[in-house]
Write a protein that binds this DNA or RNA. Sequence first.
DNA 1: GATAAACAGTGACAATTGTTACATTGCTTT
DNA 2: AAAGCAATGTAACAATTGTCACTGTTTATC
Lengths: 208, 208
Amino acid sequence: MLDPIKKIFPSFSTELVKDIDANASIQSFKAGDIIMRTGQYIKNTVLVISGKIKVYREDENGGEFFMYYLQPGQACAISMICATKNEKSQIMAKVVEDVELIMVPLPLMDKWMMQHRSWYEFVIDTYRSRFEEVLEVIDSIAFRAMDERLEFYLKRHADACGCKELKLSHQEIASELNTSREVISRLLKKMEQRGIVALHRNNIELLK
Amino acid sequence: MLDPIKKIFPSFSTELVKDIDANASIQSFKAGDIIMRTGQYIKNTVLVISGKIKVYREDENGGEFFMYYLQPGQACAISMICATKNEKSQIMAKVVEDVELIMVPLPLMDKWMMQHRSWYEFVIDTYRSRFEEVLEVIDSIAFRAMDERLEFYLKRHADACGCKELKLSHQEIASELNTSREVISRLLKKMEQRGIVALHRNNIELLK
DNA sequence: GATAAACAGTGACAATTGTTACATTGCTTT
DNA sequence: AAAGCAATGTAACAATTGTCACTGTTTATC
């Protein structure tokens, strides 16, 4: 187990990797599994080895709102910070592509902050970059209308998967932007007319 | 200087307070001063002794979007985290009521994390609570229409100042919610008819 | 191959929000 | 008291977004 961790988390010191290997457990989840729910207590800090997790916010009426993806080499910022206070989760996390996760028990997360410089830096950096990402998300809803938000959303997806072919239905997009399918269809059509995308079934191609 | 710090930040250990006293500087700013701008490098972590600071996001067109207030006993989460990486600010911070601030130089902020347990916990806790606050803000824009957002906004203000008389003009509110004055006037009128608020000049009274 | 089920397109209309243009009110200044 | 200004009220209309109803079209299932 040592080798893959070292590869996926290159910044980790050798001692840290050994500590992880000795104390953390590896768990697998299937696409569709929900690994964290709003209101649920967080018992572990989660590091992603492989696969993809969607982190989103949910309201009382079942509305969803997409925040960001967790991918290999990344960690869940929320689980880190809530960890130290044994707090409830404020977010939902759903597996999008089968994942392997390193589960670090809460007490260790905290202990390592003092013991391993590379862990400390990883945690701080994770938190900072997620905070920035969330700020950008705020911008997109606070300042932009749905057409721009849609473009922003599609670009983030393309960045996250590293490809220009987005396997998304209009309904999925609508849910994640908390609007209706019809609105998304309408806006995508306009984008197609402007030559920004090409529309296929379950597949949106980013052209520009 | 020792005594007031101890009073305003009761969780700080005696050694930490001494370290602050020996190394940090106190600065004052007047209402209206902007102490942090988007894009500016952050050189200090900011702790608030007295007064009130508004933290908000600004877009290219001058639109504003209110995020939260910093008040006595609190610290700027952004300045803490960016600190360690010498990052640019992603937010604006404007003085609302004359403030006295403790400015902690970047290198110390980082060093103390290892040396002072109470500093470490303060930083982590600050970050966690701001993250949660920002998540709530996302909820309010993602899931709610302007009428509910306005109510949410007024309540947050009332909580922040601990009173029910909000000295705000419609224009100010409109700016902070990134909409227009007319919309706010319209919605406030409706709220008045529903008996939720009483409207006076430059003064909105929360009834419920 | 027939039949669902999911996905997508579209027109019509409602509701909300944004914009324009003025009128009015109350406070401050001289 | 008159003038001036900031704050507020409001009507009318435009633009965006949300909703409903219905039509195809493709994919999956029996």
